[in-house]
Design a protein around this nucleic acid. Sequence first.
DNA 1: GCAAAAGTGTTGGAAATACACCCATGT
DNA 2: ACATGGGTGTATTTCCAACACTTTTGC
Lengths: 239, 239
Amino acid sequence: MSAIQKNIKSVLTQLESDDLNGISVDCVIFGFDDDELKVLLIKSDMKNFAGKWSLLGDLIGSKETLDQAAYRILKERTGMDDLYLEQVRAFGAVDRHPAARIITVAYCSLINIQHHHLVRTDNELHWHKVKQITEMAFDHREILDVCYEWLQKRIQEHPLGFSLLPKKFSLRELQNMYEAISGVKLDRRNFRKKFFSMNLLEDTGEYESDVPHRPGKLYHFNYEKYQQKERKKWFGIDF
Amino acid sequence: MSAIQKNIKSVLTQLESDDLNGISVDCVIFGFDDDELKVLLIKSDMKNFAGKWSLLGDLIGSKETLDQAAYRILKERTGMDDLYLEQVRAFGAVDRHPAARIITVAYCSLINIQHHHLVRTDNELHWHKVKQITEMAFDHREILDVCYEWLQKRIQEHPLGFSLLPKKFSLRELQNMYEAISGVKLDRRNFRKKFFSMNLLEDTGEYESDVPHRPGKLYHFNYEKYQQKERKKWFGIDF
DNA sequence: GCAAAAGTGTTGGAAATACACCCATGT
DNA sequence: ACATGGGTGTATTTCCAACACTTTTGC
C-alpha cells in the first residue's frame, strides 16, 4: 500500500469515525394572520418523507456562522433580512435524518405575514396553522413543539411579539396575538393598563380603517426606549 | 488518475466543502463550595492555548446523541452519572477552533462538590471561582458567560439549584447559594417564607453540626412533589 | 457571658384581578 | 336603529418588601 493510499485510508476511516458529522440549521418561521399563529413549511423532497411537511433548513457552510446560515435560509425564502431570529437549541438524535448523521440547530424567527412576500415558492412553500399541524418530516414536529413552547415563554419576558404585527397596530391586534400564542384569554382593560404602564407604546395619531365598528388607535412599539430601559436584575424565585 | 484516486479526491474535496464539520460538546460544570460558585476546568493541551483554562469537552461520537456525549464527558471526569445536565445552546463562530471548523454545543451541569471526587485529575483538573476567571482557551470564556447568565435566570424558575447542595441542607446554605449565583442579597425572613410556602422542603429532623453557633434544621427538597404539582401556565407579561 | 447565627410576624404599598357602562363607526 | 368592538375607572385581593427581637449553641 502506497503512502498516499495509506493517507487516503486514514481520511476515509475518519469519515466513518467519531470525528465528523453533518450540521444543519432549521428555521421555525412563525407568522400571525387571521388571529392565528402560523408556521412556514415546505413539502419534504426526501423519499422517506414524501408528502410530509418540513421546516426550512440547510446544511451549514464551512465559512458561515450558525446565525449567518439561519439568516441565509430566511433570506432565500422570504427575501427579507431584518427578521427577528434567535437560536433555540440543537437536536442530535442519532437517527433523526435517514441519510446521514446530521445534527441540527433550531432557530426561531418571527415575521409579519402582510409585509412580506415569499420569494421562492417551490416545494409548496406555505403558511400552516400551528394548531392544525399533525405529522411532519424528520423530527421536525418535535422541533416545532420545542420552539412553540420557547415562544410562549419568550413573549412574556421579551418584546419579540411585535415582529409578528405590522409596524402600526391596534391594541386589539396586540392582545389577539398574545392570546393566540399563549392560549390564555386576558382581560381587555387590564391588558391595556399593563402595556400603557410600560410607556413603550407610542400613539401614531392614526386609526384603523375598513373595520365594521369604531376604529381603534394605532400604536407603534418604541424598541429603542426599551433597549435603554434598565432591566431589573432579579425577578424572584417562582417554581 | 485511477478510479480510487478520483474517489479519494472527491472525499477530500468534500472535507473542504460545506457539507462536513466537526461537532463537539462542552460542559460547564458548576459547583458550590465555601459560599462561592465554582466551575470545573482543565489546562488546555493545545499549543495555541498553552496554559489557558478550558471547559471539559470532546468531539461527539457518530453513535451517540448530544445528551449522551455530555453525560459521557461528565462521567469520565467525575465518575458520576446522575448529575443535573441541560443543554444551553450551540456556538458556531467559524474560527472558534484553530485546528478545524468545530461547532460546539454547550451543556450546563450542576454538581455537589462534597459528594464527589474527581476520577481523572490529569491536565490539572480543578475547581475555579467563577468570579476570578479571566482568560480562557477558545471561546470558552464566552460560553461560560452565557451559561452563567443562563444559570442565574434558570434557578429562579426551576429548582435545579438543589443539585449544588448536599441532600440535606440548611436554609442558610440554600440562601447563600441563591445569593452567590444571583449576586443579590435577600431578606432572610422573606426567603424562608417563600420556600416554606411552596411546601416542597421537608424537615429531616436533623440539625447542622460543627457550627460555632446555634445549629440550623436540615431540610431536603421533595422533587417528586414538585413534579406532580401543576404548573401555572401563564406568568404574565413583564419586560 | 459573649459572639454568631437561628428562628419568628406584622404592616404598608404595589401590583394583579375582577368587573360594567357609554362611545364611535359601518351597515 | 342596531350591531360591533373601542375606550375607560374603581374596589378588592394578593403578593412583596421592609423591618427587630428572642433563642440556642459553641467557645
